Simulated scan of single mutants.
Amino acid sequence: MFYLFHGDDEYRRSLELATMKSKLGDQSAIDLNTTELSGSDLTLDQLIFACDSVPFLSDKRLVIVHGLAARLGRRKEAAEEEEDGEDVFLERLEDYLSNLPETARLVFVENRAIGKGNPIRKMVSAYDHGYEHEFVPLKGFQLSKWISQRVEEEGGKIDRDAVQLLANYVGNDLRLLDQEVGKLLTYVGQGRSISRDDVERLVSYVREASIFDLVDAVGTRNTKLALQLMEKLIDDGNHPLYILHMITRQIRILLQTRELKDKQTEPGDISALLGLHPYVVKKALAQTPNFAVTQLEELLHRLLDVDVAIKTGQMEPVLALELFLTEAGR
């Protein structure tokens, strides 16, 4: 059998692969009977060798190939002689898949959704022993349901508004959500349901989201809301210098993100280049239309002046922040 696992939901895709590996036996059997290959420079002989190898202490071998479908999908953009080589590869691959050994479980894995015209996807559809699973990120009710079920699986309980807050601010990154659920369950212990207050107190992305909202208010010239958010952050125990630092960090992220976006850089590449979590980049990209590059540069200069004024004792921290937010909203 052979499979195509594709789509943006890395967490559920990894769980499915882990389930397939577990069926091979214990860890030693898994190690002996699992081969992972990069499709970027894979030859058909390498693939055949891996799939034809006889399983050891198991009745199946698992061969996982990363990125081959994407590579073959780009073949039309290649030079003519390279295209001919890929066409030969495809012909031989199709012949081999029709006679794939019963002992082999071959999985083509892609980090993004693959179009219906992709040759690997076409092969999966053409054979009875081919299977496709697109891992589409969960949204809305499905995402909320997943959070609730994950908490229940771990023996906990969670309030509905806490579920909604997690979904809104952490998003559909299930791996990150799983980590945050674990922290929350450890924090509340047994017998108590996770509340909205617990999420606001413990989940780092929720705390950071308050900074996103504050910067949003600056970008839309909503000074009243910006000041209210600042007061809430202070009431929650955040030091004014911490708030200043987080605003500066966010403005700098916005400037860097805006510059890369203007160069047509993909969100995933922006995340890698800046060393930021995809959630942070997603929020920044949503904010960039509110700011011109010159405005972001000016805000950074003002923030530096505020930092110096506070640290040299020229201004009281809360007053300095209030003045900055008031001037930035003009």
Rank of each mutant, 00 (worst) to 15 (best):
A113K: 05
D95G: 06
V65K: 13
L304F: 10
T294F: 05
Q149K: 15
G156K: 07
A78M: 15
A18T: 10
D95C: 03
T326W: 09
D305H: 15
L4H: 11
S204K: 07
I114R: 06
E298M: 07
R192E: 15
D198V: 00
L106N: 06
L42G: 11
R74V: 01
L233H: 05
R302Q: 14
E16A: 08
I270K: 01
M123A: 11
T265Y: 13
L276V: 02
V318S: 01
R92H: 08
E316H: 09
L260E: 04
T34G: 09
D87P: 03
E132H: 13
V109R: 08
L57M: 08
T43K: 07
P289G: 08
L241H: 09
R196S: 13
K60H: 14
S195A: 04
N290Y: 02
L304V: 03
Q190D: 15
N290I: 01
R160W: 02
A29D: 00
L17C: 10
T248Q: 09
V188N: 10
Q256M: 08
R207C: 09
L276M: 13
E36G: 01
L106Y: 13
A104K: 10
D159N: 14
I30G: 01
E80D: 14
L255V: 12
Y131E: 12
L47A: 12
D52H: 05
L72D: 03
D59I: 04
T265L: 15
D307E: 09
L254D: 03
K76P: 01
P278K: 04
L62E: 05
N99Q: 11
S22D: 14
K157D: 14
K139H: 07
L4P: 13
F108D: 06
D159E: 15
Y169R: 07
E110L: 14
M20N: 06
H6C: 12
V203D: 01
